[in-house]
Write a protein that binds this DNA or RNA. Structure first.
Lengths: 95, 95
DNA sequence: TGTCAACATAGACATCCATCAAAACAAGGA
DNA sequence: TCCTTGTTTTGATGGATGTCTATGTTGACA
């Protein structure tokens, strides 16, 4: 694994390396339809701006995407990125 | 996912959320025999004490274990923890 | 147009973290 | 015992990060 690959992958792991973000991500992933509006997942113990801040981070890391529909903004997981991260962990050649 | 679970899992993701640590971890995992001494994997572009610092972090997160054999200290991956992290990502019910 | 609700941004602040140089520790050999 | 090599710990420092309050923006509706 070269420096560039490590940089990209680390950015994604880092995004999940915060308890609040991990709970938000998990809530979106497990929500009905694979997507959730912010109002559905905001009960993680921090203020609303903080939730918004963390969702932005997850989005910047490529783990979530968002779309506004009327009053609400819906977040959904990016399946391909998720699968890639999973492979990176389980496919480690622990010979 | 409750707060406590998130705390534990986030600690592991966080440990891999640094490019240097990710490269160190990958180097140990892909090294012959599934283990490597520090001298085998120190060429990641930072000073040797920094390497030691990061290896300690990975160890504290439960991702690596270490053992001293004579002059050298060998690190190896903890397969069970790795598998659990992989499951956490790929088993997300993206219904 | 005005108001309300959902969400995002800005700015401030305290804390954490990656990094290095220097020193300490551990083990083997002369 | 002294020296050399491999590894960890310590202490310092600059930068990143999580959190809040306050404010801005966007869209629905009367």
């Amino acid at each position: 694994m070269n420096a560039e690959e490590a940089e990209t992958a680390a950015r994604m792991f880092k995004a999940l390396g915060d308890p609040v973000r991990l709970r938000l991500f998990s809530a979106v992933a497990s929500h009905e339809g694979g997507e959730a509006c912010v109002c559905d997942i905001s009960d993680v113990g921090v203020s609303q701006p903080t939730v918004s801040h963390h969702l932005k981070k997850l989005k910047e890391a490529g783990l979530l995407s968002s779309e506004r529909r009327g009053t609400w903004v819906y977040y959904r997981v990016e399946p391909s990125v998720l699968a890639a991260m999973g492979r990176l962990l389980t496919a480690s050649p622990t010979v």
